[in-house]
Each structure stands twice: as structure tokens, then as C-alpha cells.
Amino acid sequence: MRCAVTVLLTLLLLAAPARAQVFGPPEGKVFTGLTGSNSVDKFAGEVGKRPAVFGFFTYWNQGNEYTFRYAEKAGARLMLHISTAQNYGVKEEISPRGIARGQGDEYLLALNARIAEEGEPVYVRLMAEMNQTNNAYCAFNKDGSSRGASHSTSAFKAAWRRSALILRGGPLDAINAKLRKLRLPEVRSAEESLPEPQVSLLWVPQTEGTPNIPANLPSAYWPGEEYVDWVGTDFYSRFPAFAKLERFYAAYPGKPFVFGEWAMWGADNPGFVKQLFSWVNTHKRVKMMLYNQGANPNGPFRLNSHPKARAELRKALRNPRFLATVGGG
């Protein structure tokens, strides 16, 4: 009898996914962050604080070694924003169903190994704004028509779950047991166990879908609590929908909250910065916010185009709640 119980416990352990990891800031603090360009120096000079997290937009099968080097040079923790296409309107490298069926495993296995090699926490913002039709992995066209089974919300959720299991690593028997339970193909590897890196997964949809139809709500893409470490959204001054932000924040109460992207866009509006930081300071689950300045030095999000907002942001970041380093500075 004791032997049978031992076997049962072993099987249960093998079926369990690797432990979720947050790597958040100390209680009451927020990691500042930046995405865009290969250096944080100009932005840090503009706002008076260096970012604790440095983000890079990447896509499936793209080499990402440079992102690790630039984040290390900046003294910041790395965030990878991973798409399946290089840009809007560009042919995708792989479909959500392709990921779910294991066609993207080579990329995932390589990323799992590289993050483990780094020996530091890395945030992975996987297929963000999945309910935004301009993204190749969205389930719907602009007119609301379906993109088919290869891009369905079910395929997206299966792709996310597979990605999470591989990126978190662990004994291959455990990963494959979970995949079988999900009715997904097993991972093929000569190794008995995958590295278990310090990786944290960020699920970041729009607060409502584009197109805005019930089937394209954020909840349609929710892969399940055990596969997500952070919940968040993107927020720009051109669309200051604070009521929608409030509803979305309340809908996912069990996770730390991240602004995967936020930025000025359009008018130089310091009132938006003031309102956003007031909202952040009254919503204690917000633990990270990355300003997206874009890669173009003359792009619409750059703070040199928004001097009044820049001054307000500099003022807001003087609050010691907003950390310039992951070490708490």
C-alpha cells in the first residue's frame, strides 16, 4: 500500500507545472521601466531616474543575444516582448496553433536555456495585446470575422500554456505529463530535464478588444492562473480610458499588475501623467510600469516632444516608491 501511495505522489508531482515566479519589487514599491532604443541614458537624464527594467520588442526565431547584453550594460533587468511577426502587416513566423502543436519548440527550448544561462530573472511578455487585430496572433480580423482554427482563442491559450511549461522548465516527464493532459504533443528532447530559469510570464491584453466584440474580450484569451505570473495592460495618453482600466484591474485580483507599455501620444498633456500616477499610487497591485519611447528618435512617444509631460513625469518619479534598480534604489 505504501508503495502505491509513493507512486501516486510521484505521478502527481510529475504532472504539476513548474512553480510560478513573480520577481517583483519589495512591498509598496514599483519597478520603473523603459522600452525602445539600445540605451537608457537619454531617458534617464530626461526623467531623473534610471529604469529598473529594460524591455525589447522581439519576435519568434529572432536572435535575442543583444537584448541580454544591452540590459546588462544598463544595469537593468531584462523584459522580452515576444511577437510572432517582426511588425504589423509582416508575415508571421508561426501561428498560435503551430506553437501549440510543438512547431516552435526549438525557439522555446533555446530561450529556456539562454535565460537559465543568464542566471538572473527575465520577464517574458508573450504575445501581448492578443485581442488587437493588428497583431498576427489575434483571433479576429478588423471586421470581426474569424481568422480560423489556427488563430482561434483556444489555439492561443494552448500556445501560451505550452510556452509557459517549456520556458519554466523542469523534468521532461513532468512537462510531457501536463502536455498530455492538455491534449498537446510532447516535447521532444534528448535531455531528461530542462533548465529551470528565473523567468516570469506577463499576460498583457488590451482592456477591450479591437474589434470590440464579445468573442475578443481579454477573458477569451486567459490561459489560466497557473500559467500566468503578472497581469497587465498597455495605456497611452491618446486613449485615457481610466474607467475601462479600473474594470480590467478589478477583474484579475490575484496577480501583480504591470503596465507593459505606457507613453505620451499626441498632445503634450501633463494632466495625463498626473492622473496615471495618482491611479498607480492608489492601486497597490501595480508593481511595474514600462515607458515605451519607441525605436525612432523622432517618434511620437519620445519625451522631447512632450516637455510639460516630461516635467510632470520627472516630478512623479521623485517618489521613492518608484525604484531605479531591482535592488531597491
Rank of each mutant, 00 (worst) to 15 (best):
M1I: 09
V7E: 11
L14Y: 11
L14I: 07
A15G: 14
A20Y: 04
P25S: 10
G33Q: 01
S39F: 12
K42A: 13
V53H: 00
A76K: 01
A76N: 04
M79F: 02
L80A: 00
T84F: 15
G89F: 10
K91C: 08
K91W: 12
I99A: 05
A100M: 13
R101S: 13
Q103P: 06
D105N: 14
E106F: 14
L108I: 09
L109M: 15
A116G: 15
E118N: 11
L126I: 08
Q132V: 13
Y137C: 07
N141G: 05
N141F: 10
K142F: 13
R147P: 02
A149M: 13
S150K: 10
S150D: 15
S152P: 06
S152L: 07
S154R: 12
A155H: 04
A159D: 01
W160G: 00
A164S: 15
G170V: 12
I175L: 07
I175E: 00
K181F: 12
K181I: 10
E186S: 14
L194H: 02
V199T: 05
W203N: 00
P205D: 04
Q206T: 11
T207H: 04
I213G: 03
N216A: 08
N216E: 09
A220M: 07
P223H: 00
G224I: 13
G224S: 09
A241K: 12
R247V: 13
R247D: 10
Y252G: 06
P253K: 10
G260D: 01
A263M: 04
P270Q: 09
P270G: 07
P270W: 05
V273I: 15
K274N: 14
K274W: 13
L276S: 03
F277K: 02
W279T: 05
M289W: 01
L290N: 11
L290I: 03
N292K: 10
G294W: 03
A295K: 06
P297S: 04
G299D: 07
R302F: 01
L303K: 04
N304T: 12
K308H: 09
A316W: 01
R318H: 09
R318A: 12
R318D: 11
T325E: 13
V326L: 05
G329R: 14
G329T: 12
